[in-house]
Amino acid sequence: MIRSITQQKPMEEIESLIDGINRVFIIGCGTCVTLTQTGGTMQVEAMKKSLSEKGKVVTGTTVVPVACDNLTADILREFEAQLKQADGLLIMTCAFGVQTIARQINKITVPALNTLFIGKETGAGEYNEVCTQCGTCVIGETGGICPVTACHKGLVNGPCGGTNNGKCEIDSNKDCAWTMIYNRLKELGRLDIMRIYKKPRNHLGEPSPGKFQIPA
């Protein structure tokens, strides 16, 4: 299962973003941000309390089931009066949810979270970024481990000089992708694949912003 991984913005940033918005409606989400404990019922309640203490009027709160779903607008209809009273919406969902709501509700929307990455659940409460949707997938040459994402520098020909006992130079808690790829290919008896020189990457897979339409 993939999840949108988020982190609450620093309170000072949130306060500066809602400066001048005195009446706020807060929206959380029952899916990814509930799992990561960044925008579930408890966090929404805590935000309500914190903003009330700072003198804001919280006109209402809700936790929608799946904020990025197009049905969110219909669900929010139930809160029409409270939404109307608000000067702005503080959204405690990932940026997909924020954008969905911003498109549907005619109010200024302020994200309370930073969306960090699309993560794969790799253990209880643990998520890792394993693909950044580069558009020209190369993992057929790396034992199914993505060097574009798992290597901090996106290197495709092997490790940099920063590998430190199998960890990345930027963080001793993060595995060096090229140690993982090496171990995997070695285990498979296919280090020959690692020895093949890879040309510079093609960044033209899908020029940003990506767009897709099922052919008619």
């Binding site: 020909n157 590998t163 199998g166």
Partner: peptide
């Protein structure tokens, strides 16, 4: 170019060196 002869693990570094 450069190489790190004390890299741990060493073999991935050597593969890159050869490239």
């Amino acid at each position: 170019a450069i190489v790190t002869p004390e890299a741990k693990p060493l073999e991935p570094q050597l593969i890159k060196f050869e490239k």
